[in-house]
């Protein structure tokens, strides 16, 4: 079957305002099957958000090609939902209006059905009581959950999430992870999930991509074959810790047992 998302030889170099070049991505190759949940792990500043922006079609890659069903991504796709790393809510709209914003913005109006599903989404992220609150009255983690509800509202085919749970406490974070898996099971979508947490990546994903420090290339592409549905018990299985240990090894000693996909010359 044709993969849903493909990165072929993708590299990206930013040109900063003072004319310097910053190479963020270097020769990235991977593909995501339809309905697959892929997590991306990598050190801070390695180029994860850049990867996400390329898939979102926000700007073109300077090298290689990103495609969706074999069509090059040249512009943003409407069937893609994005959760940004920072909660990006509109300060002049309340929580409910923020969740509805993409629909309002696209169509100029919102139907009653839209409002109902927005209320459902807010219920899912446990913010029902706060639907009339203004963003500045929420904590950072609550704002981030509004952002998640907003991205899920349109039921996108592709869901891109940039460290969506990083502002949450450990407990809420786990709960939200399971909620996300629930939604994903009910309404299957292709997910690219960026995270700093090894256990989160293993718990959620079908496949974990481990990135090197900048310029990022893929140092490992690990298929997680833990049974689904996953639950709290999954975390206690020896298979789970085997995966997390292996990934930790790869991150701390990338050269000893990496399935390196690139020759490793750093050119920044």
């Amino acid at each position: 079957m044709l993969p849903h998302v493909t990165f072929e030889g993708v590299g990206h170099t930013y040109e900063t305002q003072d004319g310097k070049n910053v190479c963020a991505l270097d020769n990235i190759n991977f593909s995501i099957k339809k309905g697959e949940f892929v997590a991306v792990l990598g050190p801070s500043g390695c180029g994860k958000s850049t990867l996400l922006r390329l898939l979102a079609g926000l700007f073109p890659a300077t090298k290689g090609q990103v495609s969706i069903y074999d069509y090059p991504v040249a512009a943003p796709q409407l069937n893609t939902g994005i959760v940004f790393q920072k909660p990006t809510l509109l300060p002049w709209k309340n929580v409910l209006e923020n969740v509805l914003f993409p629909i309002q913005y696209k169509q100029g109006r919102v139907s009653r059905k839209n409002k109902e599903s927005a209320a459902n989404m807010l219920n899912m992220v446990r913010l029902s009581e706060f639907s009339e609150h203004m963003p500045h009255q929420l904590s950072g983690g609550m704002q981030q959950r509004v952002g998640i509800a907003r991205a899920l509202l349109m039921d996108p085919e592709i869901l891109i999430m940039d460290e969506p749970f990083s502002a949450l406490d450990a407990l809420t974070r786990e709960q939200m992870g399971f909620e996300l898996l629930d939604i994903w099971r009910q309404k299957p979508k292709t997910v690219l999930f960026i995270t700093h947490s090894i256990s989160e990546a293993v718990l959620l994903a079908d496949k974990v991509l481990v990135l090197s420090p900048r310029p990022a290339h893929i140092i490992a592409d690990i298929t997680i074959s833990l049974p689904r549905p996953r639950s709290l018990n999954t975390i206690n299985t020896p298979e789970f810790s085997a995966y997390t240990d292996r990934i930790r090894q790869l991150i701390y000693h990338p050269n000893t047992n990496a399935r390196s996909s690139v020759s490793g010359d750093k050119n920044d």
């Binding site: 922006r53 979102a56 079609g57 926000l58 512009a75 943003p76 409407l78 893609t80 994005i82 940004f84 790393q85 920072k86 990006t88 509109l90 993409p102 913005y105 696209k106």
Partner: peptide, 22 residues
């Protein structure tokens, strides 16, 4: 914030809309 502009872009909004609504 850049992310709001990106949100607008991801919804394929025109420049006029971006200025007026964001």
């Amino acid at each position: 914030p850049e992310e709001l502009i990106e949100l607008s872009k991801s919804l394929k909004a025109s420049a006029v809309k971006e200025v007026w609504h964001i």
